[in-house]
Simulated assay, not measured.
Amino acid sequence: MIVVLKKGIEDSVVTKIAKRVEEMGLKAHVIVGTERTVIAAVGEKRNGEQETLESYPEVEKVVPILAPYKVASLETKLEHSVVETGSLKLGNGHLGVIAGPCSVESEEQILESAKAVKAAGATALRGGAFKPRTSPYSFQGLKEVGLQYLAAAREATGLSIVTEVMTPEHVDLVAQYSDVLQIGARNMQNYHLLQAVGEIDKPVLLKRGPSATIDEFLLAAEYILDGGNSNVILCERGIRTFEAHTRFTLPLATVPYLKERTHLPVVVDPSHGTGIASLVKPMALAGIAAGADGLIIEVHPNPAEAASDAAQTISTEAFADLMVQCRKVAGALGYKMAEAVGV
């Protein structure tokens, strides 16, 4: 249920009603909007709850939440959310671009990448320190050393860090070095991991699983939100279909569909979504045109020598050109987007 409070209600009253919701055996999520405050009362429905809450004079109305994902639903929060941490800001008209190599390979490589993507206008740096790979013989990442290199790149450039966490046991370690924790596609339904990142005070970028439905995707986000972490970013990174001409199929209809159903920001990953470097630019531009709040792109100073995902990685020069085109599309749609800052 959504408990819609009247305008101008004091914080003490909000706390009182939220406490009453908790006493009913429900979880209370207080959502403060520009117009008014609502409380999402989530849990198993019992008889008489709606009438009890409607009896408070400070309550305007109580409305059932129809979607299976309660806190993520646009029914719960009518305004689209903005996620902001350090240099990264995306959602509700703000377009953020996260760029960098698939894997952190060395301090020199990640520093060079960070300086190049920042100069082109990226607002966050991506890079994998822990790398989940299909083959156990592939490069698995530099782990904590890689996290230290990412932190050094942030110190040198001011860019926020986005990097993947793979297990609940690593959440505190990765959170110590990063600004946004990424949940990879393979872990979208790793519920213990979702619950663990739901308990931290850092934004989470959640990638859609390659075979996940939209409802499954949003319910995975709900695990994080239900834990108390409201800063969730959804990432469409492509799904498996019968097509073989690309690594995955990137369904950009997902973007406007999600934005009709959830207040959470939506970003597009044209690198994983296609698996082909030459397709990254057109699909990135199409993602912005479809209404995405951001992009996450694999960029390397020398893509041919990348330790992972070389085929889908673009060069720093290609990224700079892409950003020029992104600004044109974003400007036409009224997005706010960072300008290039120079070297």
Rank of each mutant, 00 (worst) to 15 (best):
E51C: 06
Y191Q: 09
N47L: 14
L95N: 13
S73D: 04
E236L: 12
N229P: 05
I239D: 10
V280N: 13
L53W: 08
L219M: 14
G25L: 07
P256F: 00
K45F: 07
G91P: 07
A318F: 02
H29T: 09
A310T: 04
V30C: 01
K6A: 04
E236H: 12
T15C: 01
S138H: 09
G8K: 12
F242K: 01
P282E: 09
A41S: 13
G93S: 15
K115W: 10
G127T: 10
E75V: 09
L285D: 08
A253F: 09
S135W: 06
A290V: 09
K89Y: 03
V329Q: 13
I297L: 00
T163G: 04
E317C: 06
A277M: 03
S135M: 05
V204H: 08
P101W: 13
L142F: 13
D201Y: 03
I39C: 01
I183W: 09
L90I: 06
A330V: 10
Q312F: 10
N187I: 07
V341R: 09
A304M: 03
V71D: 14
S271R: 12
E236Q: 13
E144M: 10
P256K: 02
Q148W: 00
P101E: 11
A152P: 00
V174I: 08
H94S: 12
P270S: 09
S87T: 14
K336M: 12
S106V: 04
K281Q: 08
A175H: 09
S211W: 14
V21N: 03
L90K: 05
L194F: 11
A153P: 02
A151N: 01
I288C: 03
E49S: 03
M1I: 06
A304S: 11
V59P: 11
I276T: 07
E58P: 07
G209Y: 11
E75G: 11
A67W: 05
R36Y: 10
V21G: 05
A220I: 08
E51Q: 15
I9P: 07
P301F: 01
V38A: 08
E298C: 00
S135G: 03
I239N: 12
K27C: 06
T37R: 01
G227V: 08
T274F: 07
K115V: 15
A156C: 02
T262Q: 06
A310R: 10
H192G: 10
V266F: 03
R46H: 02
A119D: 10
M166H: 01
T167Q: 04
N229I: 08
V117E: 01
D309K: 14
K27Y: 12
M1L: 09
Q109M: 14
P168E: 02
K61G: 03
I2K: 15
